[in-house]
Amino acid sequence: MAPSFILQMTSSEIQEKRIGYIVTRKIGSAVTRNRVRRRLKEAVRHVFPAQITEGQDYILIARENALTQNFSELEKDLLWSLRHVQRLDREKQDRNKPAADKIHV
């Protein structure tokens, strides 16, 4: 788990890349929340374009550390989190596929 954010991914019927940002009042004033949102957006701009797939929606929920964490660490955490949720999604899809070798005639 990343100390600066929580990343969630869900399938979407819309075939485009969509990313949502949630920064609650717990983070601080409006100025602070906007700064956190801008930092997350910039990290996403650097990391996501080559990594995300269409037909998936991504949600970044900011934590308090998002404001103070080193930006390169923020990008590393974002890349790790993205790969992690994509791996979990693939595993979920594999579990739901019917296995051809289980069918006996």
Rank of each mutant, 00 (worst) to 15 (best):
E54W: 03
E64D: 11
L79K: 13
V36M: 06
G55Q: 06
M1D: 14
D77Y: 04
V44S: 10
T53I: 02
L79C: 05
T24N: 02
E75S: 01
S12R: 15
Q15K: 15
R39D: 00
D89G: 06
F71P: 09
R33E: 11
V44N: 00
H84D: 06
N96A: 14
E54K: 13
L60M: 09
E54F: 05
A30N: 11
R83S: 11
L60T: 05
V31T: 14
P98E: 07
G28V: 04
M1N: 12
V23Q: 00
Q15N: 15
E91N: 11
F71S: 07
I52F: 05
I103F: 13
T32Y: 10
R33D: 12
G20L: 04
K41S: 07
R33C: 08
V44W: 00
T53K: 15
R25I: 07
I103K: 13
A30W: 02
L60S: 04
A43C: 06
R90Y: 06
I103A: 12
N70Q: 15
S11P: 04
R95E: 12
K76G: 00
Q8H: 08
R95P: 00
F48Y: 07
L67T: 00
I6D: 10
L74Q: 07
S81G: 15
L40V: 01
V47D: 01
I22R: 01
K17L: 12
V105K: 12
S4M: 10
G20V: 00
R35P: 07
R83H: 13
V23Y: 10
Q86H: 04
D94W: 03
I103N: 08
E54C: 11
L60E: 00
E73S: 14
A100I: 14
E75D: 05
A62S: 09
G55P: 10
Y58C: 04
H84T: 06
I61H: 02
K102F: 09
L88T: 04
N65V: 02
E64F: 12
M9S: 12
H104T: 10
R95N: 13
P49C: 09
T10D: 10
V47G: 06
K102C: 11
E91V: 07
G20K: 06
A50N: 09
E73A: 11
E13Y: 02
L67Y: 14
G28A: 08
S72M: 05
L78D: 05
I19H: 04
I6Y: 06
I103Y: 14
R90M: 15
L7H: 11
E42Q: 13
A43M: 04
H46R: 14
K17V: 10
L7G: 06
Y21A: 06
V47C: 12
T24Y: 01
Q69L: 15
Q69R: 15
R35N: 09
R63N: 04
G20M: 09
E91W: 02
Y58E: 09
A2F: 07
R45N: 03
L40D: 01
K92H: 12
A30E: 03
S72F: 09
E16Y: 01
A100W: 06
Q93F: 09
I59Q: 02
V47L: 04
A99L: 13
V47Y: 00
K97A: 13
L79F: 01
F5M: 10
A66C: 11
V36T: 11
L60D: 03
A66I: 08
N96R: 15
L67R: 05
I22Y: 03
V44C: 13
R95D: 09
I14W: 00
F71K: 08
S81Y: 03
F71Q: 11
